[in-house]
């Protein structure tokens, strides 16, 4: 269980993170969304014990990041937004080094396992500088996994990857989530995050503007459903009909398309459609416009940085 309470980081007069709070449970994959300079990396570095918070607390399974940094480091895997790989080192040597500093026993076995998990077994004896960007990224992830951490902090892991490498990484992260690890992943690629994250947080200028599971965050910006309707012929009867219904509000009308806001559940939505058809409204399409993370992000944030 990760609990972050009023975590704050200031540099002189400059406040990078302004008292953010959230909590995550095992298996949670938390998408941390924000513009460059919003405070994502600072938060992640504080959780990784690389930066000391100015105030606030963060505990992982009851262990405080400031009071017991060494204990925390044993439980986290930190993957920064850069590779930090050594030259002239082979893949297995790189992993062996980190396994050794984490005090992992049966290092050879563990290295083989993480290489298999990250699909790098074939590159075990290759030099790290000879790997492609996607492979280097997976190697970094393998490094984070050698000590079987409880919490994974992944800072922009998908940046610079081609679509295939990105898809593979996404699948790998989802698999790690299923293994019961808490994963915090920061990214700019919002549609991808909504695919496999079960909770998200939107941060701007150090403030956590929204936090929760994807659906609730989306609902928070659009409490009513938006339904797009296309009719055959004259749209006026349809507009009049929907305007007269309870729990609906007529929105935009353009050509034979109209939009309504509907404040009802799914069965009421079905009933509404039935009623419209019964009233001889010639409906070509009737579909709910599902908001995505990008909409939420654009609506909540102003693009300002700290």
């Amino acid at each position: 269980m990760l609990e972050v309470k009023n975590l704050r980081k200031t540099y002189g007069d400059f406040t990078a993170v302004q008292g953010i709070s959230f909590s995550l449970k095992p298996g949670d994959i938390f998408g941390f969304i924000g513009s460059n300079g919003a405070g994502k990396t600072t938060t992640i570095r504080m959780l990784a014990t690389l930066l000391e918070p100015t105030s606030g607390t963060a505990t992982l399974n009851g262990v405080d990041v400031v009071d017991q940094p060494m204990e925390i480091r044993r439980m986290i895997g930190y993957m920064p937004d850069f590779f930090g790989l050594y030259d002239d080192v082979k893949v297995w040597e790189y992993l062996d080094f980190f396994a050794s500093i984490y005090g992992v026993s049966q290092r050879d076995k563990v290295i083989d396992e993480v290489l298999e998990l990250t699909d790098l077994t074939i590159k075990k004896d290759a030099f790290v500088q000879s790997l492609s960007r996607g492979m280097q990224q997976r190697l970094c992830l393998a490094r984070c996994l050698v000590h079987d951490p409880k919490l994974l902090l992944l800072d922009e892991p998908a940046s610079g990857l081609d679509p295939r490498a990105r898809a593979e990484l996404k699948e790998l992260i989802a698999e790690l989530g299923r293994m019961g690890k808490i994963i915090i992943i920061s990214s700019h690629i919002l549609p991808e995050l909504s695919d496999f994250c079960n909770s998200v947080g939107i941060i701007e200028r150090g403030n956590l503007l929204a936090f929760g599971d994807v659906a609730s965050v989306v609902r928070s910006i659009r409490p009513t459903k938006q339904i797009n309707i296309e009719v055959l012929g004259d749209p006026d009867p349809a507009a009049r009909f929907f305007a007269s219904q309870t729990a609906t509000r007529l929105g935009e009308c353009s050509g034979n398309k109209l939009t309504i806001e509907f404040d009802g559940d799914e069965s009421e939505q079905v009933e509404l459609l039935k009623k419209a058809l019964a009233n001889e409204i010639k409906i070509l399409s009737f579909a709910e416009d599902t908001a995505n993370l990008e909409d939420v992000f654009m609506k909540l944030t102003t693009g300002a940085v700290s």
Binding site: M70, I76, G84, Y86, I101, Y102, R143, H147
Partner: peptide, 17 residues
């Protein structure tokens, strides 16, 4: 400069080690 020091010190490593 390579920024690998952060990776080392995100592990339970003391400066002395």
């Amino acid at each position: 400069q390579r920024r690998s020091l952060d990776l080392v010190f995100s592990a339970p490593v003391e400066p002395k080690f």
